[in-house]
Design a protein around this nucleic acid. Structure first.
Length: 858
RNA sequence: GCGGGCGUGGCGGAAUUGGUAGACGCGCUGGAUUUAGGUUCCAGUGGGCAAGCCCCGUGAAGGUUCGAGUCCUUUCGCCCGCACCA
């Protein structure tokens, strides 16, 4: 390397501290509500402040920050806010343990996290910081609850719910994961309690349909949501309850839900769940009652985890009663069995052992008939019974249910129709039942209403009052927020329900003494609309104004963990639709593009956890290497969606590159100055035709790799965007090594230096800012610089290497002029193949411009 | 069982639409510079052997095509979600 003006050494800590202070002072990252530029809303899932940030947060926010900064450089007015999901149980538990206030613990953690965010150089508009535990925030969550109450979307109901004995609160359906509490992994108990719900099921169909609109979401998240919503098309069929004699009809019916109405002729028994009040009623006072009660008791003792295992043996008892099959008019015995659920469908099932493996297993165990009513063409039974309308064979020797698609046999007038879900046979039987008024098509969802009340202190109080006379009465809007008291003695175990200053109040309707609801909302309610509040965080008239959400919504890029695939993302979609129906916002969906970043694991591929002691705190990387190295390493090590194992070598490699790029930029800038051009003057006259071969090739590569880097940013593929810049840096380094200072092209050096700095600016912002000012000589922030433009034409070289194939196999390579004609290429190619073509006839030649010539000869 | 995804060097991973497989980085090998290197620079690095204008190579086997990591069929393996949902 020729001697240059001495370069300044790279001191990460000094420049990072310096620029963080300047950004803060200059308010560099302020979002503008009134700008004429197109907007871009980049959002990372806000953290729960349980302590300092961990590597997962660092990765999440680094991805978002690279997107946000690059968007700004491409001319967008960017909204890139941050906040805290600050309510929740860990704060309360910590407060109980330390006899302090949950708020104190939470605010201290939030301050700590903000410090770390600033050390990472994230480009947040801290003016818009949202903390869900601030009354200015949760007031509007309460407001939304009241609106939902008015629309009938919020209600109170008593039903069996999941109670977590360790968290001392109920859980939403979505929060019972693998039969365990999502937070503490205790096994919840079923309790009959009066709880508050949001009617998300009203939106089940729309939530399902609109998944189709989410082109920018990963397939697996969409699939998970579809699964969770669980739409199932089937039929409801009414069975008449027979009298105690077993045959004469009563005037009562029991309705079942089935997706296989076609198998109605094969119904040989009927099942109710042990929890069924109807079952209780049917056996009451009979000889069957003791066995029923025993089964019911045993089911209560088995945990939900165990009961849900599909391997579990089925248990059932006969009730002594019958229903009448509406088509065959035969009596069907009613059983009670533990494999049927009370809260799905109608809570009653028609048992068709021929068509369903579970029913089959149950029939075998209890010696119930297995009438064959469906068969495939290659089944001997099909030949025997294909024209048989009446039930002549009542049992079969099979060892499993008939799972394959087949034709109905022994099924009256429907014999011969193709059966299966959504089959002609289903349609025909549905039509028949509908005509008789004893059946109807029915769409069933798995999704349940969202149970949002929690019996905990540290959350948004539900703004309702219970009056002995008036019932549940909403808190008047002018009384919002219902403030959470901050002087509870949590350490002594005091709860809101026991704290009179909170619950004592007067009924807003009749004025008599009443009791305030002491449940708080699930924290997922708080996080279901925070992205809307960021649009208008200081509004004290409304949760947000229509103009503000018109300006910023929808979120263009949402980045967060896959663990929220159902819970948070489904609730947020629901909340947005509710706000839309309240006329608050026009958008149907909150998040246009979703990126679920992979996990950061330890070097052995294990999840980082405090209990394993394998946590790598961000500070352990920032301190020795700097935030820019860490950001670079995180983005380079793997594609954003993939898990990666933490690898110190990669960090060292990233640091090596950043230092190398630093030297190269200085070398280029000094060279430019030597030739009288400002270090980073990208607009200096650059005549590509006047460049020597080495210079021309560097310029071409700059354009080629610049285009690639830009395209990779566009598809959020940061690892390859970085590799493109690495190639430019490598090329520039070779240029500096190969060409003496005097021979270098000043304008070229300035351009390359400028573009390297700007392309890396979203990823290594402090590094870029320092070079932009000190090496390239600019006064403004690189954040306000334009993303460089590259030229497709300039990316092409005059001569290119092309592959020559014989029968599709590469046999030679030729260097040809980029604008060579097809004829010239074919001639060159044939020459290159030489003797390989001897004695062969050319059948065909395929020319792929710029890539290859394939000669088909034999 | 249902749904989604993935199999490419020693490792992380590249390869917009079918068109030169292995970019970039880590690691490793050799060389240069240095008093020294956890520095920098240069070169090499999929496998095989007869060392070539060679053969084989993207989990496996077929197929379509002038041409397949990419498309189709079958199959093996792994990961994730839901699940006695009728």
């Amino acid at each position: 390397m020729a001697k240059e003006a001495e370069t300044v050494s790279y001191d990460a800590e000094a420049i990072e501290t310096k620029w963080q202070a300047i950004w803060e002072k200059e308010e560099t990252f302020k979002a503008h509500d009134d700008s004429n530029s197109p907007k871009k809303y980049v959002l990372e899932m806000f953290p729960y402040p349980s302590g300092d940030l961990h590597m997962g947060h660092a990765r999440n926010y680094t991805i978002g920050d690279a997107m946000a900064r690059q968007a700004h450089m491409r001319g967008f007015d960017v909204l890139h806010p941050m906040g805290f999901d600050a309510f929740g149980l860990p704060a309360e538990n910590a407060a109980i343990k330390n006899s302090t206030q949950a708020g104190k613990w939470t605010y201290a953690n939030m301050d700590q996290a903000i410090t770390t965010m600033k050390r990472m150089g994230f480009s947040y508009d801290y003016d818009r910081l949202v903390r869900t535990c601030d009354p200015e925030y949760y007031k509007w969550g309460q407001w939304a609850f009241l609106k939902m109450w008015e629309k009938g979307l919020a209600y109170r109901a008593t039903s069996p719910v999941n109670w977590c004995p360790s968290c001392n609160t109920v859980l939403a359906n979505e929060q019972v994961v693998d039969g365990k509490c999502w937070r503490c992994e205790s096994v919840p108990e079923k309790r009959e309690l009066s709880q508050w719900y949001l009617k998300i099921t009203d939106y089940a169909q729309e939530l399902l349909d609109d998944i189709e609109k989410l082109d920018g979401w990963p397939e697996n998240v969409k699939a998970q949501q579809r699964n969770w919503i669980g739409r199932s098309e089937g039929s409801e069929i009414d069975f008449t309850l027979a009298d105690t004699d077993g045959t004469s009809p009563t005037d009562r019916t029991i309705t079942v839900f089935t997706t296989r109405a076609d198998t109605l002729f094969g119904t040989s028994f009927f099942v109710l769940p042990p929890e069924s009040p109807l079952a209780q009623e049917l056996v009451a006072g009979t000889e069957y009652e003791p066995a029923f009660l025993e089964l019911k008791k045993s089911v209560e003792q088995v945990s939900s985890v165990e009961r849900q295992g599909s391997e579990r043996e089925k248990h059932g008892v006969f009730t002594g009663r019958y229903v009448i099959n509406p088509l065959t008019e035969e009596p069907i015995p009613i059983w009670v069995a533990d494999y049927v659920l009370l809260d799905y469908g109608t809570g009653a099932v028609m048992g068709v052992p021929c068509g369903d493996q579970r029913d089959f297993d149950f029939a075998r165990k209890y010696g119930l008939a297995i009438p064959p009513i469906i068969a495939t063409e290659d089944d001997p039974l099909y030949e025997q019974l294909k024209d048989e309308k009446n039930l002549v064979v009542r049992d079969v020797e099979w060892d499993h249910a008939m799972n394959a698609e087949g034709y109905l046999i022994q099924s009256g007038e429907f014999t011969g129709l193709l059966g299966g879900k959504h089959s002609p046979a289903v349609n025909a039987i549905n039509a028949h039942l509908a005509e008789r008024g004893i059946g109807r098509p029915k769409v069933q969802f798995r999704l349940r209403d969202w149970l949002i009340s929690r019996q905990r202190y540290w959350g948004t109080p539900i703004p309702m009052i219970h009056c002995e006379d008036c019932g549940d009465v909403p808190v008047p809007y002018e009384d919002l927020p219902v403030r959470l008291p901050d002087d509870l003695n949590l350490g002594a175990g005091e709860t809101l329900a026991e704290y009179a200053p909170f619950y004592e109040c007067d009924c807003p309707q009749c004025g008599k003494p009443a009791k305030r609801i002491t449940d708080t909302m699930d924290t997922f309610a708080d996080s279901s609309w925070y992205y809307l509040r960021y649009c208008d965080p200081h509004n004290d008239e409304l949760p947000f104004s229509h103009t503000s959400v018109d300006r910023w919504m929808t979120v263009d890029n949402y980045i967060g963990g896959i663990e929220h695939a159902i819970l948070h993302l489904l609730y947020s979609r629901f909340w947005t639709k509710v706000m839309r129906d309240l006329g608050m916002i026009d958008a149907d969906e909150p998040f246009a593009n979703l990126l679920c970043q992979g996990m950061v694991k330890d070097s052995q591929g294990r999840v980082m956890s405090k209990s394993l002691g394998n946590v790598v705190p961000p500070s352990s990387v920032i301190e020795p290497y700097g935030a820019d190295t860490m950001r670079l390493a995180i983005l380079f090590i793997a594609p954003s969606e993939k898990d990666f194992d933490w690898d110190e070598e990669v960090v060292a490699g990233a640091n090596r590159f950043i230092k190398r790029a630093w030297r190269v930029v200085w070398g280029l800038a000094d060279s430019a100055r030597h030739h009288g051009i400002a270090g980073g003057n990208a607009s200096a006259e650059l005549d590509a035709a006047k460049l020597d071969t080495t210079g021309a090739e560097l310029f071409r590569r700059l354009n080629e790799m610049g285009l690639k880097c830009t395209a990779d940013f566009d598809r959020y593929q940061f690892n390859t965007a970085i590799s493109a810049v690495m190639e430019v840096v490598n090329d520039a380094s070779r240029y500096l090594n190969a060409v003496e200072l005097e021979q270098r092209d000043g304008a070229l050096c300035a351009r390359v230096a400028h573009d390297i700095v700007t392309m890396l600016a979203p990823i290594c912002p402090h590094w870029a800012e320092e070079l932009y000012h000190e090496a390239l000589g600019f006064d403004s922030s690189v954040y306000d610089e334009n993303w460089p433009l590259f030229d497709e034409l300039l990316a092409q070289s005059e001569t290119i290497e092309m592959a020559v194939q014989l029968l599709g196999k590469v046999k030679a390579r030729i260097r040809v002029a980029a604008d060579a004609s097809e004829d010239e290429l074919v001639a060159e190619a044939q020459q290159a193949l030489g003797s390989l073509l001897d004695g062969k006839t050319i059948r065909k030649t395929i020319v792929v411009p710029g890539r290859l010539v394939n000669i088909v000869a034999n």
